[in-house]
Amino acid sequence: MAATALTIDGLEVSFGSVKAVNNVTMTIAEGELRVLLGANGAGKTTLMDLISGRTHSTRGHIHLYDTEITNWQEHRIARAGIGRKFQIPSVFRELTVRQNFEVASCRNPSVFANLGFGFSRQTLARIEEVLAIVDLRDKADVTAAYLSHGQTQWLELGLLMLQDPKVILLDEPTAGMTAAETKKTAKIINSMRGKHTLLVVEHDMAFVREIAERITVLHLGEVLAEGDIASIETDQAVRRAYLGSRSIS
C-alpha cells in the first residue's frame, strides 16, 4: 500500500457561531486523485484554505507525510510541498507566460540565492515541456493579462507543475470553461496524475466522472460519505443532503 500523503485529523474552524469545517477526518494516499463534492457552503474551499494555511484552524491536525503543517504560514506550507490553484485564476498578469513559469521554477526561496541571472538548462527544458503540456507554446512571450480565461487556468496549472509540490489542491479548475476547454483541462489534470497527489473541488459531474477515483462528500462542514463514484451516486444520505430528490445529472 502506498504511503499516506495527506492526513487530516479532526479539523475544525468556526467563523463566528458557524462551524464552517467540523471534525473533518480524511486521509489521501500518495498518488491518489481525490475529488471533494458538496453544495455551496459545504466547506470545500474552507478546507482548502485550512490545508494551504490561508485560514487557521481552531482544532485538529494536518500532516503532510510525517510533517505536521497545521497553521503554518502559507509560504512554508507551500515549500513543504503543497501547491494550490485558486477558484478565480491567479497568475502574474503583467509578466509573460514564460516569465510566469520562470518564477514558479525558482526552488530557492531566499532573495540572496536569486541574485544571479538566468536558469539552468534543465529548468529551461522543463519549462518547454510544461509549455507543451498546457498548450501555451505559441503564447510563451505573451503577457499573461491577454490570455483567455481558459488559457489563464492552464497557465496556473503549469505554474503548479513547475512548482512540483507533492500535493496539489485544485479549486474548481473548470469553472467558467467551455466544453472543449473542460476536456482539455481533464487531459492536463490526468497528465499530472501519478506524479502528484491531487485534491480537486469540482461541481461539473461530467468532469468528475472523467477524472475521479475516490470521492469525499462534504455537507455543512462535515464528511458525509466517501467512496468511488458508483457508490457515491447511489448513496442515500448523499442524495438526500446534496442532490435533493433528483439524481445526479
Partner: peptide, 9 residues
C-alpha cells in the same frame, strides 16, 4: 498571494 502559494517569502 500567488507568489506566497508558490513558496516564495
Amino acid at each position: 498571494t500567488r507568489a506566497r502559494y508558490l513558496g516564495l517569502d
